[in-house]
Computed example of a mutant assay.
Amino acid sequence: MVPRLLARDRLTWLTYAHIAIWGYFLYGFSPVVPLLRDEQHTSRTVASLHGTAFAVGGVLSGLLLPSLIRRFGRARVIWGGLAGVALSAVGLLASHPLAATLTWAVVASTGGGLIVNGVTAVLADHHRDGGAAAISEANAGASAVGLIAPLVVGSGVAAGLGWRPGLAIVAGAAGLVAVLAVVLRVRVPTGPPLETAGGRLPTPFWLVWVSILATGSVEVCLNLWVADALRTHAQVSPAGATAAVSAIIGGMFVGRLVGSRFVLRLPTISVMFAALSLSGVGFAVFWVATVPWLALFGLVVVGLGNALHYPLSMALAVSHSAGQPDLAVARTSYAVGVSFGVAPFLLAAVADRVGPHLAFLLVPVFLVLSAVAIAVLRHRVAAASLVSPLARSR
């Protein structure tokens, strides 16, 4: 197979920066949920409503994206999303009640969804055959920055400053990126005309949608509740467990950075199967571990596998969208939203009854669901490739 090329220009780096800022907020806020549970004196189930809030924001971004792009264009939508994330970071500084933190979570997730979906469509259009690799690299950058976020937040907690100052960094980073974009005159191009609200996406796309639902559930469950599991099963301190989420993110950074090279040389579906398998192996190690070092090693391996779930799924969604990239990424927001809303709430509800360790067995169930969806997709693609030559020969 001839390797595909990936040429990185100023537009590419600008989109990478947008994803990175959202990644810092997302990975910085995720390990905060157990701390909020202690601060607000709630149960795991109630604290998991922050995952539901992220889900609501994700669904809102998917609902709003098509009409916003038609009216304002990709550039304004992406910049508007970044402004929403920055505003949420500032808003959380003075927010302590549950209602307030949930509200800012919705605002941040809505903005983050606009960023991710807009940038994904831009990279897929801009890089064509190298789109999957570009999307993977963009998410690698988000993981690299996200790797720092739990460490910064955890350090603030350990120093007695709390978790809020660590997230406030987002606002400054967003302002810096905006200034650089103006100085360097980097503009986000318009995409192909967006289909009307009644536009239809083909069946292969919906198989990818199911996979995104499943892998999104895996990622959000780990991000929101792995710190709790480390505290209860591997005897890690609260501050250490918060910072230890960086083990997953570190694995994701390496996985996305290295994985982008494989995507340029191997079929996307094959790489996806390998990533799902690696996540399963890493989870098994984490789940049986009773000492910190082994649990952290398992989380690194999980991160290596999880690294490629989202970027590969998004690339598959766009490639199977029948030429409707913006509509496709808008619809994937629903899958991400449902996974963020249902999965952590389900895991937390089970954990309140049997403990977080046993509840985490939901994760391999989600991995299997994703693998089944991708296997059916591969079968349909193979069948279609056989039918097309026959049709042409007639």
Results as ranks from 00 to 15, higher is better:
3 P>T: 05
5 L>E: 13
12 T>E: 10
12 T>V: 14
17 A>F: 08
27 Y>N: 06
32 V>I: 11
36 L>R: 04
37 R>C: 09
40 Q>Y: 06
40 Q>G: 05
43 S>P: 07
44 R>Y: 14
44 R>M: 15
54 F>C: 06
54 F>V: 07
55 A>W: 04
56 V>P: 00
57 G>Q: 12
58 G>N: 09
60 L>T: 10
65 L>P: 00
66 P>H: 07
67 S>D: 12
69 I>T: 11
76 R>N: 06
79 W>F: 06
79 W>N: 01
80 G>P: 13
80 G>W: 07
82 L>Y: 02
82 L>N: 07
83 A>K: 10
84 G>E: 01
85 V>R: 06
90 V>G: 03
91 G>C: 13
111 G>M: 03
117 N>H: 09
122 V>L: 08
122 V>P: 03
122 V>M: 04
122 V>C: 08
123 L>R: 05
127 H>W: 07
135 I>L: 12
136 S>C: 01
144 A>E: 05
148 I>S: 00
149 A>H: 00
152 V>E: 01
154 G>P: 02
155 S>N: 03
156 G>H: 00
159 A>W: 10
160 G>V: 04
162 G>F: 13
164 R>H: 11
166 G>E: 03
167 L>M: 13
168 A>R: 01
169 I>F: 14
170 V>L: 10
176 L>V: 15
181 A>E: 02
184 L>A: 15
187 R>G: 08
188 V>S: 03
192 P>I: 05
199 G>Y: 12
200 R>A: 14
207 L>H: 03
208 V>Y: 10
210 V>S: 05
211 S>Q: 10
215 T>N: 11
216 G>I: 00
218 V>N: 05
225 W>N: 09
227 A>H: 01
228 D>K: 13
230 L>Q: 06
230 L>P: 12
231 R>H: 08
234 A>Q: 12
237 S>W: 03
239 A>C: 10
242 T>Q: 10
246 S>D: 09
257 L>E: 01
261 R>L: 14
263 V>H: 00
268 T>N: 14
272 M>Q: 09
274 A>L: 11
286 F>D: 00
286 F>H: 02
288 V>S: 11
294 L>Q: 07
294 L>F: 04
296 L>Y: 02
298 G>A: 13
300 V>Y: 04
310 Y>G: 05
311 P>A: 02
311 P>Y: 09
318 V>I: 15
318 V>K: 04
318 V>S: 04
319 S>Y: 06
320 H>Q: 09
321 S>Q: 04
325 P>L: 02
326 D>H: 03
328 A>V: 04
334 Y>W: 15
335 A>H: 09
336 V>T: 12
337 G>V: 09
339 S>Q: 06
340 F>Q: 14
343 A>L: 10
343 A>V: 10
350 V>E: 13
350 V>C: 13
353 R>W: 13
361 L>Q: 01
362 L>N: 05
366 F>Q: 09
369 L>R: 06
370 S>K: 11
370 S>D: 14
372 V>T: 14
382 A>L: 15
383 A>H: 11
385 S>K: 07
387 V>Y: 06
387 V>H: 09
388 S>Q: 14
392 R>G: 00
394 R>V: 15
394 R>I: 14
